[in-house]
């Protein structure tokens, strides 16, 4: 039997309703989404990351990220016991195809650090945009208005984390949107959806029922480069001091 979408609608009304709301365009027309009720961030649990690169591939598939540029990427740190301030870091093709296997190092440790836009509450990138083409949405996501962006790259220079780039063909600033088109429809981000170990979890800080609150209460979490005072909202559990 050739099942079409019509059949599906008849067979599984519940699924159909769920999917229709996914396909419905704007956040306003997504019936249950009000921007002011959310404040988005992410939790990254470093001890859970296995460096498979699923998040990087998922992000590229979901967001049409150009080759050689990354909205999210994974770094592998190798920290020698005597050289805490001087880690060896690699990220071949952003960790998209995983990392080469390594043998145990008796004098050091290895770990993976997934990176993405920190969706800073006091973001230095939106501060410097000369025209208001990049901004923090009312629900706390740093976005780029690609129809308005000049492509001056000032925001790229201002980001302490290297999360922005100029899109090679669109010639405008491009970056992680925290899958804004998904989270406004009740879905999680593509990277979180594809992460096999739960090392990445989307977090809604305004939702009291979000597990992030319990996690933050019981774990030592850190943000990247806290000295930059950017109000970063991507929280890292088990972050080593050598990570920058």
């Amino acid at each position: 039997m050739n099942i079409t979408r019509r059949h599906l609608l008849i067979l599984l009304p519940a699924a159909a309703v769920a999917w229709e709301s996914v396909l419905a365009g704007t956040p306003e027309s997504s019936p249950n989404y009000t921007m002011t009720e959310h404040w988005w961030g992410m939790l990254i649990d470093i001890p859970k990351c296995i460096g498979c690169g699923n998040c990087v591939r998922a992000c590229q598939a979901e967001n049409d990220v150009p080759d050689g540029f990354f909205r999210t990427w994974v770094e592998r740190y190798h920290v020698n016991d005597w050289q805490l301030a001087n880690p060896q870091v690699i990220s071949p093709d952003g960790g998209k195809e995983g990392f080469p296997s390594v043998a145990e190092d008796p004098e050091g440790k290895y770990f993976f650090v997934p990176k993405l836009c920190n969706h800073c509450a006091d973001s230095p990138c939106t501060q410097v945009c000369p025209v208001g083409a990049t901004f923090i949405s009312p629900d706390g996501v740093v976005l780029v208005d690609q129809k308005y962006c000049l492509g001056c790259a000032y925001c790229v220079q201002a980001c302490p984390y290297g999360c922005r780039y100029i899109h090679p063909t669109k010639k405008v600033a491009d970056k992680c949107t925290l899958c804004y088109h998904r989270i406004t429809k009740g879905l999680t981000t593509a990277c979180c959806e594809a992460c096999p170990t739960g090392a990445r979890q989307l977090a809604d800080l305004k939702n009291p029922a979000d597990p992030i609150h319990a996690f933050l209460k019981t774990h030592s979490v850190q943000v990247l480069k806290p000295q930059m005072a950017t109000g970063a909202k991507v929280f890292y559990n088990g972050l080593d001091g050598s990570v920058r």
């Binding site: 410097v128 000369p130 025209v131 208001g132 000049l150 492509g151 790259a153 000032y154 010639k171």
Partner: peptide, 26 residues
């Protein structure tokens, strides 16, 4: 030189139309 380096020089007047007060460039 600024104009030529912009990804979208045709949008450069936005800098005068909607200047962002916190931006040194604007």
């Amino acid at each position: 030189p600024l104009q030529l380096h912009l990804g979208h020089p045709e949008r450069s007047l936005e800098m005068y139309m909607t200047p962002h007060r916190t931006s040194a460039m604007a």
